[in-house]
Amino acid sequence: MLRFALKRLGSLVISLIVASLVIFSCIEVVPGDPASFMLGINAQPDTIAALREELGLNSSLPERYFSWISGMLTGDLGTSYTYRSPVSEIVAERLVISLPLATYALSLTVLIAFPVGVLAATRRGSVADISVMGATQLGVAIPNFWFAMLMVLVFAINLRWFSAGGFPGWDAGFFAAMKALTLPAIALALPQASILARVMRSSLLDTLSEDYIRTARAKGLSKRQALWRHALRNALIPVLTIIGLQFSFLLAGAIIIENVFFLPGLGRLVFQAISQRDLIVVESVVMLLVFAVIVVNFLVDLAYAWVDPRLRSRV
């Protein structure tokens, strides 16, 4: 298991290096001169020259790459051109919202999807199964911003249980902050839970028809015991894959929901940075997101190996 983890860790580092090279070259090399791109077509030549100096564009490509990487490793992401403050601070401000929001939404996703998927699979063809399939179909189909607005209408405006948006900050207390994140988390979780419940159901149905379930029944296990002891763990592999993808998506893909609830999260930051041509912020946030995706995949790989002993020995 340790050997497996070390090997995966090695490939994690390699992936990160490759990703950083790709991001660096996309942003610094491909679209011509970053300084004039950031300042727009009406910029004065001396302003451009000043920005070039500030960005360190006058040094060679490898030098710029290594100073970017070493800055990143020491927590120095440079200074945002539009915000005029260190990128690390801006990102940190956003991350304290986006990371809890993504975790919250993913927990809800799993908490909804697991029981629902198991219920549908064990009662295949029953009213419960058909309702689950119908509801999850709807959950996938309904755009989450529409559902978010509906929830704002019901729970914030009519019932006044929650505020319609905004974030009081963690200083306001854990529960106040979590309360502000609840509606957005539900809005994010519902479509994800619908997908995950369907994956859980079909994966479990596949597993339940395996020969070893019949063997377990022949040993005297009831249907329920066979499900819990033998089917569930084997059904987890495809489910883990989807969970990994969903977390990465939730971290940065929440932009519409962030807008509906006026949450200053990472998604909005990327959007603003792109529209303001703040390449320094874009570069750092994209690298951060890539880092998150790769780390999540690493964790998913470890989870695979924990679930399935065959993967441990294959490396």
């Binding site: 063997t215 377990a216 022949a218 002993p309």
Partner: peptide
């Protein structure tokens, strides 16, 4: 307990995990 059964396909009759 009273009845045991052995199946045709040993490759798939055991839980792999």
């Amino acid at each position: 307990a009273d009845l045991g059964m052995v199946f045709q396909e040993p490759m798939t009759a055991l839980n792999p995990v």
